[in-house]
Design a protein around this nucleic acid. Structure first.
Lengths: 346, 346
DNA sequence: TTGTAGGCGTTATCAC
DNA sequence: GTGATAACGCCTACAA
């Protein structure tokens, strides 16, 4: 078995020069049809493929994009990666995936890797407001797109795609109000995450629109973001004489825990208590009562991010306005919040 | 801002020649200590990083490994990727991830991509016995490692890592027998998957060891691999006068469906029915009764695969024996199969 | 111990 | 419309 078949082999096989073979790829229009088909058939026959390494070395844009995520087993992160991969494939790009750096040293090492590989750009999901990584990327001249980072600096240094969590909270509570509920509860974990705060703001907006004061939003204390925590919330609600008739939990496990506890106590869902969760985890649709859930469009976010990166890197150095895309979450309505239990499906 | 800083800049800055800078990287031992630190400090000062493209072009082994998986949102696939990424990072490699090809054309296109990028190797999870892709890889001279493919050809063409599903079935049923159960059921989907068949074989082995005939294994028919299907199984079992006291379901959703149905009918789990699922999905531990589940070591599989690939590509062309690693699944025991409900803990 | 030069596979710029 | 040739950045003999 011979070594790698190169452009020279193709040229020889087709009886043309190296430059002509290159032209067949890069400027097909300037090469004679007859020559072109001869070259193409030689390529086919020899199974020649271009060397990306040589192309990039020569100055062609790289086709590698890097996607560091916090947790490779987290469904939301993987939705991002999935969306990115689909869009990347469509654009002829390949996705380099990894767990994102945990500290400055890892960050530096990873940055070196990116520079060594000569990636075309990076899709990042910042976990906090530290801008060390984006600054480093900028310093290295590597374009990037921010994903799911609400607390953007006032002067964005790159494109970004985010999710409108305020709208999400509004949609969830609006849906419950539409179902005739007047006593609505909001359950979130103890860590006051920005996204929870935004959903809460959205919930209050929905109430305000319906003419209810902010104080009408019931907020049971909740010790965590797990099913166990949800059960505790449920237990406490059971003995609450004035308990809400509908609950928006900012986490599906939380909602499922509440669901378990209430059903075991003999309450009916959604009749005695309507439930809306958040994140639409896999199991939500398989629960004993399929759970309505606020779905964050991770896949669309990944895909959009790739397109933004593409747009940014296509323009030849021409400073273009960094795109700031905001996606809306979607409420997936299932039995846990449907009034008419007769049409229960999904 | 200047263009990319190259090896020549470093050489100039350090007052040495290009070759010496290269030697600092590739044969540090032959360069004088004093020169070396001077070069290193120049590298540091200028923020120089080597061009992987140029290195590979020059003949260095690539640091890219490709991991095509069936579904980027499937937890098991992602466990593979996670394990691979961790091991790869440790080895200084980067992971190229994508959805695996669905047809021959996609396969060919993907193969071209791999060749163009000059990947060092591929980790593949075949979905059927078609060997077209492995043969193509072999033809292209790209090393690969098979993951989770039980039906290997007699003469393997590469390393492989698999999971011992027979042992898994045996462990699950043995666990139930140890719990004092004598009437054990086995529930799997309608598609007779190889892995299900192997788990069944393991289940029969466990029974045989305990002195029970193969006919003692109860096998309720099951219409699918979903929670809904599980509920149907549960419903049918409720009216079975001679129903098993323990069930091994080859899928967690199935087991959770059974669990829901039985509990709603007032049966207690595990007292009236012990349950063991399979795959240990995220939600298994959060179910109303935390579910015992057979966990397949995807992460270890990915990591092992990378190490095998490394071993294979380190050896300079010297034909080495392809490693065939078999990993054991692990039974994660939770309340749904524990006799003593007093010590119940996740 | 250090410097010099050739070549890896492309692409782009010229002549022809 | 086509062919020769000089980079791109690095590694490695080989020469000094």
């Amino acid at each position: 078995m011979k070594a790698r078949v190169g452009i020279a082999d193709v040229a020889r096989e087709a009886g043309v020069s190296i430059g002509t073979v290159s032209n067949v790829y890069n400027r097909p229009e300037i090469v004679a049809v007859e020559t072109r088909i001869r070259v193409l058939s030689a390529i086919e026959r020899l199974g020649y493929v271009r060397s990306e390494n040589a192309r990039v070395l020569r100055g062609q844009p790289s086709r590698l994009i890097a996607v560091p995520v916090h947790d490779l087993t987290d469904p939301f992160c993987m939705a991002l990666v999935q969306g990115a991969e689909e869009a990347a494939r469509e654009a002829g790009l390949a996705v380099l995936v990894c767990k994102s750096a945990q500290n400055t040293e890892e960050e530096a090492r990873y940055l070196d890797l990116l520079k060594e590989q000569g990636v075309r750009g990076v899709l990042i999901t910042p976990k906090d407001d530290s801008q060390s990584f984006t600054e480093a990327l900028q310093g290295a001249g590597i374009p990037f797109v921010l994903m799911d980072h609400d607390a953007r600096p006032s002067r964005p240094r790159g494109c970004s795609v985010t999710i409108d969590d305020v709208a999400g909270g509004r949609m969830a509570v609006q849906h419950l109000l539409d179902g005739g509920h007047r006593n609505v509860g909001f359950v979130s974990g103890p860590h006051h995450l920005l996204q929870d705060a935004q959903r809460r703001a959205g919930a209050l907006e929905a109430l305000a629109r319906a003419g209810y004061p902010a104080t009408s939003l019931r907020e049971p204390v909740c010790p965590g973001m797990t099913a166990t925590a949800g059960r505790q919330v449920g237990k406490r609600l059971l003995s609450d004489p004035n308990r809400p008739t509908a609950l928006f939990c900012t986490n599906d496990l939380l909602a499922l825990g509440v669901l378990q506890e209430l059903r075991e106590a003999g309450l009916r869902v959604p009749d005695d208590m309507a439930l809306v969760g958040c994140d639409d985890i896999d199991y939500a649709s398989s629960a004993s009562v399929p759970l309505t859930s606020l779905q964050r469009p991770g896949r669309a976010m990944g895909a959009t991010a790739v397109r933004l990166l593409e747009a940014e890197t296509m323009l030849d150095d021409g400073e273009h306005d960094h795109g700031q895309v905001v996606l809306s979450p979607e409420l997936v309505v299932r039995s846990s919040s449907r009034r008419e239990t007769s049409t229960a499906q999904s």
